[in-house]
Design a protein around this nucleic acid. Sequence first.
RNA 1: CGGGGUGUAGCGCAGCCGGUCAGCGCGCAUGGUUUGGGACCAUGAGGUCGCCGGUUCGAAUCCGGCCACCCCGACCA
Length: 495
Amino acid sequence: MASESTQTESAETKFVEDLAEKDDFAQWYQDVVYKAGLADESPVRGCMTIKPYGYALWEHMQRAMDDRIKATGHENAYFPLFIPGSFLEREAEHVEGFAPEVAVVTRAGGEELAEPLVVRPTSETVIGHMYAKWVQSYRDLPLLLNQWCNVVRWEKRTRPFLRTTEFLWQEGHTVHRTEQEAEDETLLILRQVYEDFFIKELAMPGIPGLKSESQKFPGALRTYTIEAMMGDGKALQAATSHNLGQNFARGFGIQFQDADGVVKTAWTTSWGSSTRMIGGLIMVHGDASGLRMPPRVAPIQAIIVPIWRKEAERAAVAALAGEVEAALRAAGVRVKADWREERPGFKYNDWELRGVPIRIEIGPRDAQNGQVVLVPRTDRAKKEIVGKDGVARRVPEMLAEIHQALYDAALAFRQSRTYRTSDYQELKAIMGDKERLGFVETWWCGDGACEAAIKAETGATIRCMPLEQPEGSGPCVYCGRAGEGTRWAIFGKAY
RNA sequence: CGGGGUGUAGCGCAGCCGGUCAGCGCGCAUGGUUUGGGACCAUGAGGUCGCCGGUUCGAAUCCGGCCACCCCGACCA
């Protein structure tokens, strides 16, 4: 992201300089969000306005996620925004975890409310309340629902998409007959819904794993996560899936009569993914020119930039552009032509900033030859000249190639910033070095005290204990002890 | 919640040693020339200088209070 600047350098370099000022990733991130037109500020602190381009991206992500949620047997429903304040208190860890960050309505309709209402920070409690009414028999199970909604968490520090006071998400809530069934569900969501979504839709490699006790969801038995590495080496918890055990079922009385006639307490799960994924997508794929949209969720997959001087040229270009646009649309490509009264160079930069995967240049020369120029966002040097009849075949192929290129680059970056060491001093050094910052894979004894000490001394937390644990065991990176509770863990600094 | 900082045009800023200090750049509007990597010229629109009070003949400028926002930490999808 670094670049020198002199007066003689190209305008492009100057632009890059503008965007990636002083090699400051946080600043770069904010600039991209706003300049690419994804979002804008709002009059309320920590809240965000999502602009049409950003919302279109969200809609494509939603659809792809929703398809997976439904394909795994879930249905959508909707539960209320307001929750009786007392509900949060039915689960001890839950209220402790969320009480500090809930917004509470105490006055409405011109009167003080008898019982304050909290604006949902998450919906385990109201849904638990409803589920208790809906579940009577083992025949009612499993109950597999999901909802798309907004939630509010009064965070101290906010950043667009990554941590906003209000955010959009999906939250799944399920009820099961046995502990094993709940655990299977939790892992099914983690892998077949979330991990698959990140790989196939966002071109984002993630590491599925288990959270430590200190990092798990308040009230959960176990929390599983997909952890992804951002472009600055920091980690983002991209989605989580919780096995809630019987904690919420007990708090809300979700019971059923089993086949053996015995009344039993149910087992529940919950799992969520939010607009935070947009922040992840930006920080994983973005470069010095701006955003790079993963093709499958890109609001615009191909942008036609017409080039002309004279009116006659414009007519010829328009004819070809119209033909190409129609052919691509018929092939299922989200295509748009940019006829704004701007120079081509301006448009190139503008669409690169917005991350459109393929630019299609059509100028007088192309109109004459019945061809177009395809330029992939991932590598401008790989531009191709394609005959107009080949465009509808070549563009979808190229989109798939771009998806793969983005994935490969993100994975290669993560690997280059992943270190295996049992040397605590080395871990400390990596966490303190901006150029090397990344994931440290090592053994951890399982003691929360070691975890806390590492966090205090290095700023790093256990991102997860990967589902794929290596053979054997070893001494804890901090205390050197070895034993039963030892796990292979990934340490990193988190967003 | 602790520490620091900033509020002047849509955005980014200068002016802060009371008195042509209501200004600059970008953006916006209109017209013209341009158009294969962020064009240029001309004309123009746009601000109760965060709010309230004080000092003064006179306050963006000095003083007091309030409010808001930003950054850095601790807490978090």
